[in-house]
C-alpha cells in the first residue's frame, strides 16, 4: 500500500487539476455568452442580406454571374474546414475532421480531387502535416475573436480558386450548434451559390424596385458578400459549439477529479488506520514482552 505521504501529495495534485478544469469551464461559459451575443447581433444583417439577394435573384439566369456558374464537369472540389484553435474540448474537432475525411473518401471514389482550406488551428495542422492531400492553407487564430474581415479573407481564398476554375465546386464543414450537448458536424455547399428563396413567394410581397445601377451589377456586387455572410455564420456556429463542447468536457473532467479525490481520501483514511493499528500492535506486544 502506498505511503500516507504519497497519497496526500496525490490528493493535492488532483485538487489542483480540478481547480483548473473548473476555471476552464467557467471561462468557456463566459466566452460562449460572448459568441452568442455576437450571433444575435449578426442575425439582422444576415436576414436582411438574404432577403435582398432573394429579391434580386428572382428571375435571374444561373449563368449571369461567375459565382453562380455550375460547371458541366467537376474535377476538383474545395472543402473549407472549420475547427477550433485549441483542444481540450472532447471529440469536437475529431468529429469535424472525420466528417472531412469521409467526404474526401466519397469524392475520391467518384473520381474527383479534393482541396482543403482550413479555418482554425486543429484542422490546419492536421492537413498541413498530411502528405498526399492537396492543402491550400487557411487561417488560424481564436475563432471567437475573428472579425468579419478575417473571415472574408478565408472566403476569398476559396472564391479565387473557384473564379480561376481551379475548383468547380466548394463545400464547407462546420459545427452546427443544436444545443449545449449536441454539435453536429455539417456539410454545406457554398459554391456555386444558390440564391436563397423569398420567404413569401408570389404573395403581396412582390414590389417593383428601382434598382441602381442594374440588377446584374448589384448582384455581382453582393454575391461575394453573401458568401462572406454564409462563412461568417458558419464561424459563429463553430465558435459557439467549441465553447459548449469545452464546457461539457471540462465539467466531466471536474467530476472525474472529484471522484478520484473521494477514492484517494478513502484510501488515505484506510492507510492511516492501518498505520495506527500496526503501531498499537507494536506497543501491546512490547508491553506483553516486558510484563512477561
Amino acid at each position: 500500500m502506498a505511503s500516507l505521504r504519497d497519497i496526500k501529495t496525490k490528493i493535492k495534485g488532483v485538487k489542483k487539476t480540478r481547480q483548473i478544469t473548473r476555471a476552464m469551464n467557467m471561462v468557456s461559459a463566459a466566452k460562449l455568452r460572448g459568441v452568442q451575443a455576437r450571433t444575435l447581433r449578426f442575425r439582422p444583417y444576415a436576414e436582411k442580406f438574404a432577403e435582398v439577394l432573394a429579391r434580386l435573384a428572382q428571375g435571374m439566369r444561373p449563368d449571369s454571374h461567375p459565382l453562380l456558374y455550375q460547371a458541366p464537369q467537376i474535377n476538383t472540389v474545395a472543402v473549407l474546414l472549420f475547427t477550433s484553435e485549441r483542444g481540450l474540448c472532447g471529440a469536437f474537432n475529431n468529429n469535424l475532421i472525420l466528417t472531412a475525411l469521409r467526404f474526401i473518401r466519397e469524392q475520391e471514389a467518384a473520381g474527383k480531387k479534393v482541396r482543403i482550406y482550413a479555418v482554425g488551428r486543429k484542422g490546419y495542422d492536421y492537413y498541413a502535416n498530411r502528405r498526399g492531400q492537396d492543402f491550400a492553407g487557411g487561417i488560424t487564430g481564436d475563432l471567437g475573436s475573428m472579425g468579419f474581415e478575417t473571415v472574408a479573407a478565408a472566403a476569398d481564398l476559396v472564391m479565387r480558386d473557384f473564379l480561376s476554375h481551379d475548383v468547380q465546386e466548394a463545400h464547407m464543414i462546420y459545427s452546427n450548434f443544436r444545443s449545449m450537448s449536441t454539435q453536429a458536424p455539417t456539410l454545406e455547399k457554398i459554391l456555386p451559390i444558390t440564391p436563397p428563396e423569398l420567404a413569401s413567394p408570389g404573395g403581396a410581397q412582390v414590389i417593383d424596385y428601382i434598382i441602381e445601377p442594374s440588377a446584374e451589377d448589384l448582384v455581382g456586387e453582393i454575391l461575394p458578400r453573401y458568401l462572406n455572410v454564409r462563412v461568417y455564420q458558419a464561424l459563429l456556429e463553430t465558435a459557439t459549439g467549441e465553447h459548449a463542447a469545452r464546457m461539457l468536457a471540462m465539467d466531466n473532467a471536474t467530476k472525474n477529479c472529484s471522484e478520484i479525490i473521494t477514492n484517494l481520501t478513502i484510501m488515505y483514511n484506510k492507510a492511516r488506520q492501518a498505520a495506527i493499528t500496526s503501531e498499537l500492535i507494536d506497543i501491546v506486544s512490547g508491553a506483553d514482552a516486558v510484563s512477561g
Binding site: 435582398v52 429579391r55 434580386l56 428601382i210 441602381e212 445601377p213 448589384l218 456586387e221
Partner: peptide
C-alpha cells in the same frame, strides 16, 4: 453616395435598391 452618384432620400420615397 450610391453606385450611380449621390442621392437624397425623403420620407415616402419609392422602393429602391442600390449599392
Amino acid at each position: 453616395v450610391g453606385s450611380d452618384g449621390a442621392m437624397g432620400i425623403l420620407p415616402h420615397h419609392t422602393h429602391l435598391l442600390t449599392g
